[in-house]
């Protein structure tokens, strides 16, 4: 070793001084909480696929009804109960407009001399099921989304106040919650629908009347966890008002949990809307939602299974997508909860 060293000329070495100020340098760009979450959720294939499916369904819910020339509420008795017919797919032997007439399989479009195509067929009143499906999806999504937003707003305000102010206020507010939480959602939703006329808003109100309780408890728990931490004390010392502390300091910290919970509230709302419609307490015809479409389809299941097929697939896809995105978000936003 030492002999080799001697052979090397002195000037091939150079003294480098280390600038100690660079020791703590962060070479990677700093990521915000949501950027970080995105990096993590991107690896979750199921969640990403679900996002694409969800975006597609939402897109179709708004564009779908205008893609065909038929109106979703237009009754045309002459075109009643037609099977699906999609031009281009006829050669494959599917969606070719053939359906059962008695025990024979015939092309009902030729039989009834229908010139136009109904991609997903028609129902017993001759309403176009393609536009009805997407219109119904739109309404189901609207109900679920609005109900979820109301739950979040009331839940955050109630839970925030209860947790932040604590003491007597918290005591009274929590006693109320403890009584309310005993009431089963199913019972309250059905009773509420019964006094209000079935419609979009009565379903939304019925769903939100106890829906916020879960959210309020989560928010309260989180607020209790954070409110005694140093950064809140610092903000207080600097003279921040209560509102400012709640909105600027506490809310951003509990945002993740709120978003995760909303992702699970939406499918629950979609389910309850469909459930109500299925037992005949939902929207009234000619309005459509996924639930009413499934209910309609169920009545004609034996001879026209296509009426049930499409809404059943869409509602299942929606529920699966929301649940998978919710799972993905939970893993990505809250690594502690990961298994």
């Amino acid at each position: 070793m030492t002999t080799n060293m001697k052979k090397l000329p002195k000037d091939s070495f150079e003294r480098i001084t280390i600038d100690s100020s660079h020791a703590e340098k962060i070479s990677k760009p700093s990521l915000s909480f949501w950027q970080d979450a995105w990096l993590r959720i991107r690896k979750n294939k199921a969640a990403i696929v679900s996002m694409f499916i969800l975006v597609f369904i939402v897109f179709m819910a708004f564009v779908g009804p205008y893609m065909v020339e038929h109106d979703p509420e237009d009754v045309k008795v002459a075109h009643a109960s037609l099977p699906p017919k999609i031009p281009g797919l006829e050669k494959l032997g599917i969606f070719d407009g053939e359906g059962k007439l008695g025990s024979k399989t015939v092309n009902l479009y030729e039989l009834k001399k229908v010139e136009v195509n109904y991609w997903f067929g028609t129902d017993s009143l001759g309403r176009d099921l393609f536009s009805r499906l997407w219109k119904g999806t739109q309404i189901s999504l609207l109900i679920a989304f609005v109900a979820a937003v109301i739950d979040v707003v009331i839940g955050v305000i109630y839970g925030g106040i209860s947790g932040y102010y604590g003491g007597r206020v918290d005591d009274i507010m929590q006693r109320i919650v403890e009584v309310l939480i005993g009431i089963p959602t199913l019972v309250i939703v059905i009773l509420m629908i019964m006094i209000m006329k079935p419609g979009i808003w009565s379903i939304i109100i019925a769903l939100s009347i106890t829906g916020w309780i879960g959210m309020s408890r989560i928010v309260r728990g989180q607020v209790l966890k954070y409110k005694n931490q140093e950064f809140v004390l610092a903000a207080k010392t600097l003279g921040a008002s209560d509102t400012r502390i709640i909105v600027k300091h506490l809310l951003p910290n509990i945002m993740a949990i709120i978003v995760i919970n909303m992702m699970f509230t939406i499918p629950t709302a979609i389910f309850f809307e469909a459930f109500l419609s299925f037992i005949g307490m939902g929207l009234q015809a000619p309005k459509a939602s996924l639930g009413t479409l499934i209910n309609d389809g169920y009545k004609f299941l034996e001879y026209q299974p296509h009426i049930l097929f499409f809404p059943a697939v869409i509602i299942s896809l929606l529920m699966i997508a929301f649940n998978l995105i919710g799972d993905g978000l939970r893993d990505a936003l809250d690594p502690k909860m990961k298994d």
């Binding site: 499918p267 499934i294 169920y298 299941l301 509602i315 699966i320």
Partner: peptide, 22 residues
């Protein structure tokens, strides 16, 4: 598990009825 949580019971019930009974 995901399917069980996501697919509404009435969709599943109708499916079962159609396949096994009808």
């Amino acid at each position: 598990a995901i399917l069980g949580i996501s697919i509404p019971s009435f969709v599943f019930a109708v499916l079962l009825q159609y396949v096994f009974a009808v």
